[in-house]
Design a binder for these strands. Structure first.
Lengths: 213, 213
DNA sequence: ATTTCATGTTTTGTATCCAATTATGGAATT
DNA sequence: AATTCCATAATTGGATACAAAACATGAAAT
């Protein structure tokens, strides 16, 4: 009996997401059902399911009878996205902070340590969310966590686009380390402030990158 | 040429949503693909698409190889849900308030006036969201509006369950009228405060109903 | 009598096939 | 030569058919 029997539609979802995040498809590019189905070795039925999941995550947009395209990242979208993250993530963080355990710290630390210079954008996005998720998950609010995951998936595309524009390295790793250190020291308010600053900085950097285009 | 050619999967989504909101399926009930497909006169392919949409709206939950069931409404979920609404809806409302037009007021008023004692729970939920949406839509934040719509769909199920428990009539109509009046008077801060109070009250009433069970 | 295994039924997940809508290219007309 | 109209090709949306997994029932063995 398979415990983690991932359905092929779910596999396709992450595979296509990785293709998009790794820059194989650019914003605005059409996403053809036939081509992707042939490439992934599955039929169009589960592939359409995967496209709907990607649509819900804001990575592709659908037009009736005209297929799907990779979503466009606009400054308005980025503002919108990070304003929501700034409103919701501190909420989850604040609820989780008093009950964070050594195991949660270990999970966050592993996410940070797994980042290497050879990591692909998709891997970096996954590890970035793994770090945040480790610090939010104990809050025990399933719907909030689910919403944050969705927002972070859209943010992953935005960040990938942004990093492909600017050549200067991001500061997120140092900020992540500082947040984790504050948590370990029991400085809850400090950790919260650092998290807000982290998100605010990421938003500003992304907007600068987009508007320099 | 049809301008609003709704695909049959989208039609099925709203039809099934209405069945759930109108109490035809209770929380925990299994949602069988064959039965619904036959009843709606469509095949299982678009119906599965509809079920995924309902899953994303939090109305059904999926178990691998075990099908879908109507979601359960727990106090934790309600707290979670309304905390997010309280964080996000004032954000949209604040951005929209300075640019609300007579047309927006008319849309909100029509939503209020369309409610009748004979309205079904599904219709009341639609009109409730139509009222809120009219006051938020001018904020021009697509992702925020999309997220709020999703949360309101989950809230619709919670409210329906709550109203089926308590027999006392809700106070939301009066509160809606007061909010709209404040908007028309240009009292933006007052309208915001009333909206927050409205959501806070709805959350408390719902929790009371659930815990009286 | 209880437990276990096997088989049959039910239900989901996937592939293939058909219909409907849209884009594209060429020919005819002005 | 440019534009419009029609026909054909290409692509998405939906239906049917098939495979595989899970639950239920029942019989046999301890």
């Amino acid at each position: 009996m398979e415990l983690n029997a991932l359905t092929s539609a779910q596999q396709a979802t992450t595979q296509i997401r990785n293709m998009i995040l790794n820059g194989e498809f650019l914003p605005g590019d059409p996403v053809r059902q036939d081509i992707l189905a042939a490439r992934l070795g599955i039929s169009r039925t589960p592939l359409r399911q995967a496209l709907q999941s990607l649509h819900d995550d804001g990575l592709v947009v659908h037009s009736a009878n005209k297929g799907a395209r990779v979503a466009l990242i606009t400054p308005d979208l980025v503002r919108d996205l990070f304003d929501m993250r700034l409103a919701l993530e501190p909420m989850a963080f604040r609820a989780a902070l008093p009950i964070l355990s050594k195991l949660d710290f270990a999970r966050a630390e592993m996410a940070l340590d797994s980042q290497t210079p050879e990591s692909t954008p998709a891997e970096l996005s996954d590890l970035n969310w793994a770090f945040h998720y480790a610090l939010y998950a104990p809050c025990q609010r399933e719907l909030l966590l689910q919403t944050l995951q969705r927002l972070n998936r859209t943010a992953a595309l935005a960040s990938t686009i942004g990093m492909s524009i600017t050549t200067q390295p991001g500061t997120s790793h140092e900020e992540h380390c500082a947040i984790l250190a504050a948590c370990k020291n029991g400085d809850d308010e400090g950790a919260l402030a650092l998290m807000v600053a982290h998100l605010t900085g990421a938003k500003a950097a992304l907007l600068r990158a987009l508007e320099s285009q």
